[in-house]
C-alpha cells in the first residue's frame, strides 16, 4: 500500500512538478509542491490507519451552538 502511494506520488511529481520547474513557473511549482506534500502526508497517514480528525463534529457543535443562541 505505502509502496503504491510512494510510486503514485513520484509519478505525479514527475509529470506535474518537473515541467513547472523547467518552465520556471515558480509560483505554480511551490503551490503544487505544497498541496502535493499535504496530500501525500494524508495519504501516508491514511494508509497507516491513523485517525485523522474530521471537521464535521466541530462544525456540528458550532452550528448547534449558534442555533441555540438564536432560538
Amino acid at each position: 500500500m505505502i509502496v503504491l502511494i510512494i510510486i503514485g506520488y513520484s509519478l505525479l511529481a514527475l509529470f506535474e512538478l518537473i515541467p513547472f520547474y523547467h518552465q520556471k513557473h515558480w509560483r505554480e511549482f511551490w503551490v503544487n509542491a505544497g498541496f502535493g506534500f499535504c496530500s501525500f502526508t494524508i495519504a501516508v497517514l491514511l494508509s497507516f490507519d491513523v485517525n485523522i480528525p474530521s471537521p464535521s463534529e466541530p462544525i456540528k457543535n458550532m452550528v448547534m451552538f449558534v442555533i441555540r443562541k438564536l432560538v
Partner: peptide, 16 residues
Amino acid sequence: LRLNDYRSIVIQVALL
C-alpha cells in the same frame, strides 16, 4: 494565490 492557470493544481486538490 495568483496562479496563471487553475489547471496546475487540479490533481492535488482533487486528491485532497
